[in-house]
């Protein structure tokens, strides 16, 4: 199923990237999650797949069964998942805090650190209202 996963990884990449280009930062974070999954799938697929033979050494054996699944990508992905989770948590709470400080989650309206150039037209509209 490697070719299918290659396509799925690309698809998740594309969807995630599209979401990252949205104005609402919550969508951007969702996009990040999709791309994280996609990158993990890239590693998983690149290590080649094996069905029904997890990389475990059975009790009483000293070697795993012949044709065992490649354990290295699994370990790498485990690491990547945890790292990705940490980063995601931070990004999500950053969105929350940014909303508290800036009054918006619209990235087009975030122009405090880089104020508009003289004569530039900026995004019109009021800060988003908090939902009731």
């Amino acid at each position: 199923m490697e070719p299918l996963l290659a396509i799925m990884a690309g698809f998740l990449f594309a969807s995630g990237l599209y979401l990252m280009l949205r104005r609402n930062y919550v969508r951007v974070v969702i996009g990040l999650i999709l791309i994280s999954n996609a990158a993990n799938l890239v590693i998983f697929t690149m290590g080649r797949l094996a069905r029904g033979n997890p990389p475990l050494v059975a009790t009483g054996e000293t070697m795993p069964a012949e044709g065992f699944a490649n354990p290295l990508p699994q370990a790498l992905i485990l690491t990547a998942i945890v790292i990705g989770f940490g980063l995601l948590a931070f990004a999500l709470v950053l969105a929350y805090r940014a909303y508290r400080e800036l009054g918006t989650v619209d990235v087009d309206a975030m122009r405090v650190a880089e104020p508009p150039y003289p004569g530039e037209k900026t995004v019109s509209g009021t800060p988003d209202q908090e939902e009731a």
């Binding site: 698809f11 990237l17 280009l21 969508r27 996609a38 508290r100 509209g125 988003d128 939902e131």
Partner: peptide, 30 residues
Amino acid sequence: HLPSLRPVESRASRLRDAAVATALGAAVTL
């Protein structure tokens, strides 16, 4: 704590974003 998913982008910008995103996704797949 956060507001709803507004605002929405213009159609042109969505098409452009979709094209760019798809390009990279396709490149990765290839």
